[in-house]
Design a protein around this nucleic acid. Structure first.
Lengths: 144, 144
DNA sequence: ACAAAGTGTTAGGTTTGCCTTACATTAATA
DNA sequence: TATTAATGTAAGGCAAACCTAACACTTTGT
């Protein structure tokens, strides 16, 4: 049974997303950095990177900076967009504090359907064009 | 290291939620029914029920109907409320079809924070009191 | 009441993702 | 440059959740 190459486990999505963000910021990223950021052991990182190499999502040789392949970038952008959509929705529509919005986004990004996500994007945008509604909602919740 | 008795794995939450729903409907539920509903083997159900008994969330003897303890009911209501909040939000605010709303709720209910959930409830309620906004949003999305 | 159907458990496996320990390799710095 | 620090990997384990196969027990239907 060959692996479905179209999907990644939540864990691998986290790895690839972290690598992507580092790459966006032009920060060289090594395995040990990943271990620190994701709070896992260097050994676990080593295993995970091997899987990502096998799936041709990253290129990596020991002691070098990890980098994403074109395919890896596509996967990463997909996850990153989900994260961003959720975070913006939580912050701008539901008025959740950035930290908590981010924490929820981190978990939900791996499981929510694309269709719901698209609708969230539309909703956030619609609210932006109709500011008064959210202003009223904010008044409502802060009054409590 | 003793287990944290305040939280359950996603899987066990699914078991207990299913048991709760059957109990609400007054439908007697056996292990084999659970296996069918959750699409797992009877053996897996047997293991899971043993864990729930150990945690004092259900009472159960072979070949009898499974039932929730008071503690189990509290856990189940908590999950069930989350599910309901999410499903209503997806359906009524984002206009997601019931099936898809339910599928997303099933997954997200296990990981979303209570605070975000509360805000969703407030938002859904607020929208209900301001129907025009959602009517406009619906127009917007169906126009595409 | 007894065979057939349904239900439950046990034993033994698999997979995934993590761990620690120990060791090897590379990089940094005194 | 010679240590020391940092990094990476391999081996061996563990725990959670699932599985199948085999067997035991209970319920149902004729």
């Amino acid at each position: 049974m060959t692996k479905n190459s179209k999907t990644l486990s939540s864990g691998l999505e986290d790895y690839i997303e972290t690598i992507y963000i580092a790459q966006l910021k032009n920060l060289p990223l090594k395995g040990a950095d990943l271990a620190r950021q994701l709070c896992v052991s260097r050994a676990s990182v080593s295993e995970a990177l091997a899987k990502l190499v096998a799936k041709k999502l990253i290129t990596y040789n020991s002691y070098e900076t990890i980098s994403l392949t074109q395919l890896g970038i596509e996967f990463a952008q997909n996850v990153y967009n989900k994260h961003h959509t959720l975070k913006m929705f939580f912050e701008q529509v539901l008025f959740i504090a950035p930290d908590e919005a981010g924490e929820n986004a981190c978990k939900i990004e791996h499981i929510i359907s694309q269709n719901v996500l698209n609708r969230m994007t539309e909703f956030t945008e619609f609210c932006r064009q109709n500011e008064k509604f959210l202003t009223e909602f904010k008044k409502e919740i802060t009054r409590k």
